[in-house]
């Protein structure tokens, strides 16, 4: 065990996850260190969300080890919140789940996430962008060591996405928390990342955005040898083709 791994907030070692006879992750290693921004990219069905949920402890791997630093606080921002209309929920009440924050913390967290004090509004009345920031504000309330975001900009346009990632970066700079996120916005998100991991059931490659972007294998990394990053990007934002995979 290397010293670096021992100091990591979260360390996954040779993780294998299978669901319904299909192997989703095979032999994945991942270590997140304090204060770094790590972005996972990969095609649909490559196991990105499964990897995040393994970090959260929501997926039990078939093999391998998940180690969390003692007392690790995780702030989780899900891709979307399926809000059942039968469940009445104001923004302020949502902020107090599952732990009631100290007085005054909610408006501060909302402001930090870029929202006015909308604690009295029903959660269901928020726009997609406001909802994303409200989810971020709730995650910040636990004063997390690690922010985990699952495709936080799904549903936002490109300027909105870029602004969101800049906000994540400045949050990291101000708070010193680590960030682990999944993204489809390859170009936009790579600029805000310290490390990019390309996943396709296994770790295809990883490194700084620059090293990944300038590597000769760049196209192969993101397109599995058939499609380049740009093509993948266009695919996500343009026509929909069925490639026989599903979003993991």
């Amino acid at each position: 065990m290397s010293g670096l791994r021992a100091m990591s907030l979260v360390a996954l070692e040779r993780i294998v996850v299978a669901e319904g006879g299909r192997q989703i992750l095979s032999g994945v290693d991942l270590a997140i260190d304090r204060g770094e921004i790590v972005t996972i990219v990969g095609p649909n069905g490559s196991g990105k969300t499964t990897l995040l949920r393994t970090v959260l402890g929501a997926v039990r791997p078939r093999a391998g080890r998940v180690r969390q630093a003692p007392g690790l606080r995780i702030g989780y921002v899900p891709q979307r919140l399926a809000l059942d209309p039968t469940l009445p929920m104001s923004v302020g009440r949502f902020m107090a789940l599952p732990a009631r924050p100290p007085a005054g913390a909610v408006p501060a967290a909302l402001a930090e996430a870029g929202l006015p004090d909308i604690a009295d509004q029903p959660l269901a009345s928020l726009s997609a962008g406001q909802m994303q920031r409200a989810l971020l504000a709730r995650a910040l309330l636990s004063d997390p060591d690690l922010l985990v975001l699952d495709e936080p900009t799904a549903g936002l346009d490109q300027p909105g996405s870029a602004a969101f990632y800049r906000r994540i970066e400045s949050l990291r700079n101000a708070r010193g928390c680590a960030v682990l996120m999944v993204s489809h916005d390859l170009h936009v998100v790579m600029a805000a990342s310290d490390r990019v991991i390309c996943l396709n059931g296994h770790v295809c490659c990883e490194g700084t955005p620059e090293s990944v972007a300038s590597a000769p294998a760049y196209r192969a990394l993101f397109g599995e040898g058939t499609r380049g990053a740009l093509a993948l990007y266009r695919h996500e934002h343009g026509h929909s083709h069925d490639h026989g995979t599903r979003d993991g």
Binding site: Y76, F94, L97, P98, A99, R100
Partner: peptide, 19 residues
């Protein structure tokens, strides 16, 4: 109550909080 309401909304939110 708090854990049950959180998990009714999204179980992973509860898990990430250590519940």
């Amino acid at each position: 109550w708090q854990g049950l309401v959180t998990a009714s909304l999204n179980p992973d939110l509860a898990r990430a909080a250590g519940l």
